[in-house]
C-alpha cells in the first residue's frame, strides 16, 4: 500500500514537472564552449557564436526567454536527462545512437566543405570537366577524401595528406591546383592568413548526406515533442525571412548555398 502510494506520488510529480516545463516562459539550453565559430566566449566573457545567436533568434521567434547553461561535452546528454536544461544546441551531429536517447529538431546546420584554389587559378567551378587532369589535395580519410575520390578519382590526380598543414604547404609550393577542405579550416588557413592569394571555388558543399551526414540538430528530451515542434517552426521561419542567411554570412563570410 505504502509502495503504491509512493509510486503514484512520484508519477504525479513527474506529470506536474512536465506540464510545468512546457508551460514555462523560459527555457534553458545546454552548450559546450569553446568550439569556434559555433560557440565561444568573447573576451568580455559573453557567449557568442553561430549556435548561440541562432538559438537566441529562435527563442525570440517563439517568444520565450532563453538561458544558456555551459556544460562539458561528456555530460551534456545526461545533463539534459537530469533537467539541468531543456535543450542542447552545441554542434551536435544527428546520429542514430543519439536518436535513441534524445529527440532531435530538424537539422539546422551542416558543416560545409569548399574548394579552395590560388586566386589566379583558371578553375571557376568544380566539375569533372574543369578538374580533369588537375592535382586535388585532400586530408586522408576525411569525408572530403571520400567525396573527391568517388566523384573525381577517375579524372583527376588526388593527393592525400596526413594533416591540413602539409596540404596547405604543398598548395603554396605550387604542387596542387585545388584543395577540398572543411570550410572553416580553409577559411582560417587559406583565406584569412594569406592576403588575397586564395579564393573559394564554387558554392559551399553540404550534400549529399551520404558523405556530409545529417548535420547538427537541437536535442530535446523525448517527451518534449511540443517544444521541438515550436523550434522547428521557428527555424523554418528564420530560414524564410533571411535571418538565418544573415547569421550564416556573419560567421562564415559567405551566404549558404541557395536551394
Amino acid at each position: 500500500m505504502k509502495k503504491l502510494l509512493s509510486v503514484t506520488l512520484l508519477g504525479a510529480a513527474l506529470i506536474a514537472g512536465t506540464v510545468q516545463a512546457s508551460d514555462k516562459e523560459s527555457i534553458r539550453i545546454g552548450v559546450d564552449v569553446p568550439y569556434e565559430p559555433m560557440e565561444y566566449r568573447l573576451p568580455s566573457g559573453e557567449l557568442t557564436g553561430f549556435d548561440i545567436e541562432l538559438g537566441n533568434a529562435l527563442c525570440a521567434e517563439i517568444g520565450i526567454e532563453c538561458e544558456w547553461v555551459v556544460q562539458g561535452w561528456d555530460g551534456i546528454i545526461p545533463g539534459l536527462m537530469a533537467r539541468k536544461y531543456d535543450a542542447i544546441m552545441s554542434s551536435m551531429t544527428i546520429n542514430p545512437d543519439r536518436r535513441e536517447v534524445v529527440l532531435f529538431s530538424d537539422p539546422y546546420f551542416t558543416p560545409p566543405s569548399a574548394w579552395f584554389a590560388p586566386a589566379d587559378s583558371e578553375i571557376e567551378a568544380a566539375f569533372k570537366e574543369t578538374l580533369e587532369g588537375k592535382n586535388i589535395g585532400v586530408q586522408r580519410g576525411t569525408l572530403q577524401d571520400n567525396y573527391a575520390t568517388d566523384r573525381f578519382g577517375d579524372v583527376a590526380n588526388i593527393s592525400r595528406y596526413a594533416t591540413a598543414d602539409d596540404m596547405v604547404l604543398d598548395m603554396e609550393a605550387g604542387r596542387l591546383d585545388i584543395v577540398f577542405l572543411d570550410f572553416p579550416v580553409g577559411k582560417s588557413t587559406l583565406l584569412d592568413s594569406e592576403a588575397n592569394e586564395y579564393k573559394v571555388v564554387g558554392d559551399m558543399i553540404t550534400e549529399p548526406k551520404k558523405y556530409f551526414g545529417d548535420g547538427f540538430g537541437i536535442a530535446f528530451r523525448k517527451r518534449d515533442e511540443e517544444l521541438a515542434k515550436k523550434f522547428n517552426e521557428a527555424l523554418a521561419t528564420l530560414k524564410e525571412n533571411g535571418t538565418y542567411d544573415k547569421l550564416f554570412e556573419k560567421y562564415f563570410g559567405q551566404a549558404p548555398k541557395s536551394k
Partner: peptide, 19 residues
C-alpha cells in the same frame, strides 16, 4: 613514401583503413 602523398603499398593500406 605515403607521407609525401605517393600511393605506395602502405599508402593504399592507410587509404583502405581510413575509408
Amino acid at each position: 613514401a605515403s607521407v609525401v602523398t605517393i600511393m605506395d603499398l602502405t599508402g593504399a593500406a592507410r587509404f583502405v583503413y581510413a575509408r
